[in-house]
């Protein structure tokens, strides 16, 4: 068996999972399952939110150790699901390591929804969230209009600005400001509901859920890291909304 290839496949699987926002225990578990298929005596994996360390060793071979730094993280449930399936296939002996490596490279490249679908989903879910909290049709519609602005800012900023904090702040600033203008000219709308519904797609759902699950699993390192991540994202949104409302109060008389 080519242990080097096996190790690289496991590392790649772990990397994709960690980058896609999987819980830490799932990253470790997947890698351990793949590495264990070598039947070597010593398999160790240590994953955190920001990096992975793994070792494969046995009296018979030179130990293999690797470190992977996880820098970019995004939310991609479909990749987690696909990698999970690959690891199951390796374990069941249905898939060879070489096939798995090719498949994993494929998973890393694939983007299951084009940007246009994502844009439409953003607009629809923003309108939907206003509906959840009991908004009227008009409120939902205006939240959808906010959604269009968010999509435009997102597509402009994503390539130019590296900081997610600044992007979130800019988005929530714009949507708070626009909503205040709406509310000034259309008195029957509920501006609180529109702003609340509009910021929902920005809230850190995955970090919050994973912070809870990691902590319960005993991965306190990752649990705390994710809780801080969730807090920082929330802070960005809060500051943006605050500045947006404040800015409107400052210049609102002129508009």
């Amino acid at each position: 068996m080519n242990y080097k290839a096996l190790f690289e496949t496991a590392m790649l699987a772990g990397e994709i999972m960690a980058q896609s926002g999987a819980e830490t225990y799932r990253v470790e578990d997947t890698m351990i399952r793949i590495l264990r298929s070598s039947n070597l005596s010593s398999v160790e994996v240590y994953a955190t939110t920001t990096g992975i360390v793994a070792t494969l060793s046995d009296p018979a071979i030179e130990p293999i150790t690797g470190v992977k730094r996880i820098i970019n993280r995004s939310n991609n449930l479909s990749r987690i699901n696909d990698v999970n399936q690959v690891s199951r296939n390796i374990c069941d002996g249905v898939m060879s390591i070489e096939e798995a490596h090719v498949k994993l490279e494929e998973i890393r490249q694939i983007k299951i929804y084009p940007n246009s679908i994502i844009a439409i989903a953003t607009i629809i879910s923003m309108a939907g969230f206003v509906g959840i909290f009991g908004g009227s049709w008009l409120d939902c519609l205006l939240a959808g209009v906010n959604g269009i602005f968010i999509v435009i800012i997102g597509s402009l900023a994503d390539k130019r600005i590296g900081s997610a904090f600044i992007i979130d702040m800019a988005k929530s600033f714009v949507l708070a400001f626009i909503t205040m203008i709406f509310a000034k000219y259309i008195p029957e709308v509920n501006r609180n509901l529109i702003i609340i519904g509009s910021i929902m797609p920005l809230v850190p759902g995955i970090p919050i859920t994973n912070a809870i699950r990691d902590t319960l699993q005993g991965d306190y390192n990752s649990g705390t890291a994710r809780a801080v991540e969730a807090f920082v994202i929330s802070l960005g949104i809060a500051v943006g909304v605050g500045l947006g409302i404040g800015f409107f109060n400052f210049v609102g008389g002129m508009i």
Binding site: S78, R79, Y113, S125, I132, M200, P201
Partner: peptide, 19 residues
């Protein structure tokens, strides 16, 4: 509200690239 919740959650899951 419940229908909105369905739509919002489904829309949201696309943002997270749910299969």
């Amino acid at each position: 509200q419940i229908i909105s919740a369905f739509i919002a959650t489904a829309g949201f899951s696309i943002l997270f690239y749910l299969p």
